[in-house]
Design a protein around this nucleic acid. Structure first.
Length: 111
DNA sequence: ACCGTGACGGCGA
DNA sequence: TTCGCCGCCACGG
């Protein structure tokens, strides 16, 4: 949790992790929403920060999904077994996928 | 300083 | 609805 002692963390990453931390259990947010929250014009850039999140699942980056409801990646992987673990984590928190492997909009938490 | 890359997003076809 | 293209921007080589 002591992010300030790690000089490898950029100020941008700290902002992302800080905002991400506020997403409550049982809810999710999106890369784009998170980006706007911290005043960044690129959801992709947020993804890049979460991609190397050293504080998972303390910083709940598994609660950040794509705007179309598809899961997004996890632990550096855009697809594959890592993503399955992301889904398992979400499920354990009460977030389920619909019949088309999308997360229902109702789970999205607004800052 | 330049350039390719990527856990994204929106829009048109 | 799905697919491709392009714009986005932080980072590392």
């Amino acid at each position: 949790m002591n992010q300030e002692i790690d000089p490898r963390l950029t100020p941008f990453q700290k902002k992302v992790y800080e905002a991400c931390r506020q997403i409550p259990k049982g809810k999710v947010s999106t890369y784009g929403s998170l980006a706007r929250r911290i005043g960044c014009g690129s959801a992709q850039a947020v993804g890049q920060a979460l991609r190397v999140n050293p504080f998972a699942p303390e910083v709940p980056c598994h609660r950040v999904v794509k705007s179309d409801g598809s899961p997004g990646g996890f632990f550096g992987h855009a697809a594959g077994p890592e993503v399955l673990r992301k889904l398992a984590l979400l499920k354990s928190e009460g977030v389920e996928l619909n019949s088309r492997d999308r997360i229902d909009p109702g789970y999205i938490w607004e800052f």
